[in-house]
Structures are given as structure tokens and as C-alpha cells.
């Protein structure tokens, strides 16, 4: 039908799709360096909004809250997710079938349902909404993601190395400590990184379970979008995008290393 062996249509579509994915982000970054009061009209390049950002105390407070929750939620969910993955991988009982369903379900429930149901629970139990409730909520959805990532890593590697360790004189604890965990580490770190970004980025669930004084960065950005100062958001968003790029780059490096060892 045509001289070229492959159709150009998919290539063109892919290019358009990538353009579609990146144009809003690029425009946003561009505007963050705009001096104008109204972000949509281009005046001249400046770092004014970044400087202004430095003096916005509320942002720093929100960032501190976000990081505090992200770090604690990541640590907790990494431990819970790793033990869950080990249990799911090692045992084939009916308990583990239920366990798997339990871990899987939060992945398919829309955020708004998770947020609302947790809010109702906290209200019903008379728990004061605030940092602690956000932490509890974040761990609940992060556990599932960490479990899935670690489980994938576990399913990838050869179980016989654990038997080999036992065979060479390692008891269960030693085999776990010297062989299983070092091999699992890239998976655990990748899971933790995922949990960290998800927690840092979560808006909907946080929105439902936050209380006075527990404004996180996404909550703050949301209120800025609704009522605030657009150029300031541009600048903040650009910083966040930069951080994301670094995180993705870092995790890719980690994955590459994992692939090399595996």
C-alpha cells in the first residue's frame, strides 16, 4: 500500500500526545518568570515571584506540615507494606487471599470515597481532626502502593537464594537480614519514594480529614487557586515540578541499578 514499511500515524499521534501532556506545564513554567501582576499577560522576565515566595510564611508552614506528614506516613507505610508483601509472597493461605483483597481494594476506591469514609469514622469516634488524622489517612492509602511495589520486586527474584542462605547456616532472621532485605532494598526504596510523592501530592483525602492548623501544601495551593495570587502559584508550581523531575530521575537511577543487580 505504501512505500514506508510502518505507518506514520502512530508516530504523529505520539508526538501530539506528548505535546498535549507538556504544553500546559511549559506554559506554566514560562509564566512563573513573568514580571506582570496578571500572570496571563507577559511583561518581562524576572524572579520577582520566587522572591515573593520566600516571604510567604504560610507557604513554609504548609510545606513543613506536608513534609512532616509525608515522612512519617512514608516510614510507617513502608514498614507495613514490606511486611504485607513478605506475608503475601511467602504464604498461600486463605488468610492471604483476604489480605490481598484488603491491600488491593484501596487502589481502586476513588479518593473522594476514601476521604469521606475516613472523615465519618473520625467524626463518629470523636477524633480531633488535624495532623494526626491526615497521617492516619495517608498511611492507609500508601500501604497498598508500597505493598504492590515490594511484591513485584519479590516476585522478580529467585526464592532459592533464601534457601541457599539457610543451607549455608543462616537462620530465618539472618537470611532475612543478610540476603532478603539487601535484595529487596531497591523495591522498598522505590515503594517508599512512591508513598512519599503520593502523600506530598494528595489533596482530596487530606481535604476531608484536615483540621484547623493542619494545612498542607496541596491544601494551600488549592486555596490559592480559588482565591489567590496566580503568579505566586506559578512560581511555586515550577519549584514543585523541578522537585518532581529530580525525584523521577533519582528513582530511575535506582531502578537501573536494581535491574543491573537482578
Amino acid at each position: 500500500m505504501s512505500a514506508s514499511r510502518r505507518s506514520l500515524f502512530p508516530v504523529a499521534m505520539t508526538a501530539l500526545v506528548l505535546l498535549f501532556l507538556y504544553i500546559p506545564i511549559l506554559v506554566l513554567i514560562l509564566y512563573s518568570f513573568n514580571d506582570g501582576r496578571f500572570s496571563v499577560r507577559w511583561d518581562h522576565a524576572s524572579l520577582k515571584w520566587y522572591r515573593r515566595l520566600l516571604h510567604e510564611r504560610a507557604i513554609w508552614h504548609a510545606l513543613r506540615n506536608s513534609l512532616l506528614i509525608a515522612v512519617t506516613a512514608t516510614l510507617t507505610s513502608t514498614v507495613l507494606g514490606t511486611t504485607a508483601a513478605l506475608a503475601l509472597h511467602r504464604y498461600r493461605s486463605r488468610l492471604q487471599k483476604v489480605h490481598y483483597g484488603l491491600v488491593y481494594a484501596p487502589l481502586v476506591v476513588p479518593d473522594i470515597l476514601a476521604g469521606m469514609s475516613l472523615l465519618l469514622l473520625f467524626v463518629a469516634c470523636g477524633v480531633q481532626l488535624g495532623m494526626s488524622t491526615i497521617y492516619l489517612a495517608h498511611v492507609s492509602f500508601c500501604v497498598s502502593y508500597v505493598t504492590m511495589v515490594v511484591l513485584a520486586r519479590l516476585q522478580d527474584f529467585d526464592v532459592s537464594v533464601i534457601e541457599a542462605a539457610n543451607d549455608l547456616g543462616a537462620n530465618t532472621w539472618q537470611a532475612t537480614r543478610y540476603v532478603l532485605l539487601p535484595l529487596l532494598l531497591p523495591g522498598i526504596v522505590a515503594g517508599g519514594l512512591l508513598a512519599f510523592t503520593l502523600s506530598l501530592d494528595d489533596f482530596v483525602i487530606t481535604f476531608f480529614v484536615s483540621g484547623p492548623g493542619s494545612t498542607t501544601l496541596p491544601l494551600y495551593i488549592y486555596s490559592m487557586i480559588r482565591h489567590g495570587n496566580p503568579p505566586l502559584i506559578n512560581a511555586l508550581s515550577t519549584l514543585l515540578i523541578a522537585v518532581t523531575f529530580l525525584a523521577v530521575w533519582g528513582s530511575q537511577r535506582l531502578l537501573a541499578k536494581q535491574r543491573k543487580d537482578g
Binding site: 506528548l18 501532556l21 507538556y22 504544553i23 500546559p24 506545564i25 506554559v27 506554566l28 509564566y31 500572570s39 496571563v40 510523592t197 501530592d201 489533596f203 496541596p218 495551593i221 488549592y222 487557586i225 496566580p230 502559584i233 506559578n234 508550581s237 514543585l240 515540578i241 518532581t244 523531575f245 525525584a247 523521577v248
Partner: peptide, 20 residues
């Protein structure tokens, strides 16, 4: 290239469209 926007803050992406 496909994953990076997916890792970018969700609110930031929505806001980017509002600007655009």
C-alpha cells in the same frame, strides 16, 4: 516522558490548564 506529568503535582497540572 509519559510518567513525568503523572508524577507532577495534580493541582499544579489542573492549575496549568486554568492559566492556559
Amino acid at each position: 516522558l509519559v510518567v513525568v506529568p503523572f508524577w507532577t503535582s495534580f493541582l499544579v497540572r489542573v492549575f496549568a490548564w486554568k492559566t492556559l
